[in-house]
């Protein structure tokens, strides 16, 4: 398996390989991102997605690559507080933005975010691959304030697929957090 010995290349997804095309490789472009509260000066190629930047360059492996086409929601992060699919976002276009990933939800002392606690409490995952995206999405759902009923939670979480089928418990977890928020 010679291909397993290939070194990872900074700035490229290992499975995508370098972008193909004629002409010289454009220079890396300097950008600034605030990631989980930390301001980072970075250099990116124009075709590097936010997802690949997080995982391949910054070793933030919590954000997952599922379909890489905006169909599964595993790559969901918060951009300036709003949930987006990081696989469809070019990092260079997010210059100056704030990014929150699953790694940034817990407090500095390690205290879990209430949504993380609720997912554990309600057993809202099996394999766990979609979970970082589910939790980021759910945190945004609470902040958006458009969903209150179970039906609304399901509709507003439809951009996050779970192939293990933990949906019932995911809705339970979110409903729990919404109820606690409402009681505050």
């Amino acid at each position: 398996m010679a291909d397993l010995e290939l070194p990872l290349r900074q700035g490229f997804a290992p499975d995508a390989g370098p972008a193909q095309g004629p002409g010289p490789l454009p220079d890396e472009i300097p950008i600034t991102l605030t990631i989980n509260g930390e301001r980072r000066a970075l250099h990116v190629r124009p075709w590097t997605t936010l997802l690949d930047l997080l995982r391949e360059d910054l070793s933030l492996y919590g954000t997952k690559k599922g379909c890489d086409h905006g169909q599964c929601g595993a790559c969901t992060v918060l951009l300036d507080g709003e949930r987006i699919n990081s696989c469809l976002a070019l990092a260079v276009m997010k210059d100056g933005c704030e990014v929150t990933t699953i790694e940034g939800l817990a407090g500095p002392d390690g205290t879990l975010h209430p949504m993380q606690e609720a997912f554990i409490e309600h057993d809202a995952f099996q394999c766990g691959y979609c979970t970082p995206g589910q939790i980021c999405s759910a945190v945004a759902l609470v902040k958006e304030g458009h969903a209150t009923s179970r039906a609304e939670i399901r509709e507003h979480m439809s951009g996050n697929l779970c192939r293990c089928g933990a949906y019932t418990n995911i809705v339970d977890a979110i409903e729990d957090v919404l109820a606690k928020e409402a009681a505050k």
Partner: peptide, 9 residues
């Protein structure tokens, strides 16, 4: 249409 994430972008 789409999902909350996609509609945001």
């Amino acid at each position: 249409g789409a999902s909350a994430q996609l509609r945001n972008s």
